[in-house]
Each structure stands twice: as C-alpha cells, then as structure tokens.
Design a protein around this nucleic acid. Structure first.
Lengths: 111, 111
DNA sequence: CAACGTTGTTTTTTCATTAGGATAACGCTC
DNA sequence: GAGCGTTATCCTAATGAAAAAACAACGTTG
C-alpha cells in the first residue's frame, strides 16, 4: 500500500500553482520555448499555454517572458517570480514528501 | 493564498481510501444504512455503493457488514477493519494538515 | 520581401470519469 | 402473501477535461 499526496496553491479557489505548472516551467527554462516544452512533456501547446495563462491570471503577475517572431520564431524565458516560485515549491515539496512518508509509516505500518 | 492538500491510499494504482470513503463510512456508522448515508451526503446510492465496493475490492476485505431485507429493509454496519482504517486515517490527516501548514508558512510566507 | 518557427487565441471534437435512473432480490412485519 | 425499505447491479446520461485543429501576428534571417 502506498500514500499519494497532492498539493496545490490557490487564491480564492483559483488554482495558482502545483506540480504540473512547476514541471512545465522547469522544462521551459531548459528549452527556452513553451512549444518545445509542451512537446517534451507530451501535451498540446494550447494546454501548456492555458496552464501558464491561468496561473498568471490568478497570481496577478507574469511567469514567462515571451518573444514572438525573431530568431527561431521567438521563445519564452522564466521571470524572477517564476524562478522564486519553482524554488519555493520544490523545497516545500521535498520536505513535505519526507514528513508525510514518516507519518504514513506511523499510522499505516501494519496494513 | 492557501495550500490545498489531498491524500489517498492506493495499492498498485488502485484507489483504496481517502477523504470521500472515510466520510461516507463515518456517515454509515452514524445512520446504520448506506442509502441513508448517501442521501445525507447528497450523492446517489449507486455512487456510494461503488465507492465502498471499489475500496473493498482493492483492499481485499469487507468494510461494511450488510443485511438485505428484514426490519427496516436491512442496513449496513462497519466492520472492525473499517473502524481501524477510519481512526488511522483521521489521526494521520490531523497531524499531516498541521505539519503542512507549518511548512507552507515557512516557504510561502512572503507571497 | 518571402520564409520560418514561435506565441496567442478561439473553436471544435474526442474522451474518460462521474452521476443518475431503473430494476431485481431480499427478509421481516403485518 | 402484500408491503416496505434496503442492498446489489447494470445501463444510460451528463459533465468536464483533454486534445486537436486552425489561423493570425510577429520579427529576425537570408
């Protein structure tokens, strides 16, 4: 038996940030492009775009800095806010997973 | 900004137990009937039944002890396994929520 | 100035999960 | 044996998410 845990930051019920957007942003940082990141993660561009867009709307500030046209057609890079959020979420996540595993063993060891 | 957390016990990907089944079982214990519990929670009987059934299948043992027919048409009562699971889950949940709130403030206080 | 690959956006279609409705079986009570 | 309320089960409908398609706008490159 295993424990599955999910976390999500919200603002008045609106989704702001979670595992999906975090992974997507990290891939954007690696590839410098939202469309390439979507391909890498096997999701449609429109889904990737709407994930970022929704987070930005709920958050009230930009997560990616985009360029349309130009060399290579354009691209996307992370804003400082996005970098901050990713780091905070990853640190939080790592610690949370560790503690929850301890709790899980404490309460469900026998099962 | 708030943190939303969800937990679920699984076995090889199959859902075993979580917030929904736990609340449903607690309501069954209170009312002595699965159909009454479903009404109290505003869900259809078939949904309530399938929730329990799926958990039992994944778990490999019974969670409710049912009687069909007889006085009042029958009814359902919790098995010792169900009682054990409910208590373990509630204790786990309470402690997990507390710790996660501490972590949340630690990492996202500024936001 | 044409080509290219990207972003931005809308619309349509597909798909999976969930919710609900209908019905049979059951056993006690009257 | 009829009536009742429950459990058990199946089948259909509704909801919502995901995917896909389509197209305009953009700016550098050659």
């Amino acid at each position: 038996m295993e424990l599955e845990s999910k976390f999500r930051l919200t603002k008045e019920g609106e989704k702001i940030f979670g595992n999906g957007p975090c992974l997507l942003l990290e891939t954007v940082r690696k590839l410098g492009s939202l469309s390439k990141a979507a391909k890498e993660l096997n999701m449609s561009y429109s889904k990737a775009w709407s994930m970022i867009n929704r987070s930005e709307k709920a958050l009230g500030c930009l997560l990616i800095d985009t360029q349309i046209g130009g060399t290579g057609g354009g691209g996307s890079n992370l804003t400082p806010v996005a970098e901050y959020l990713i780091k905070a979420y990853r640190d939080f996540y790592k610690e949370a997973i560790y503690i929850l595993d301890v709790l899980y063993r404490k309460y469900f060891e026998g099962f």
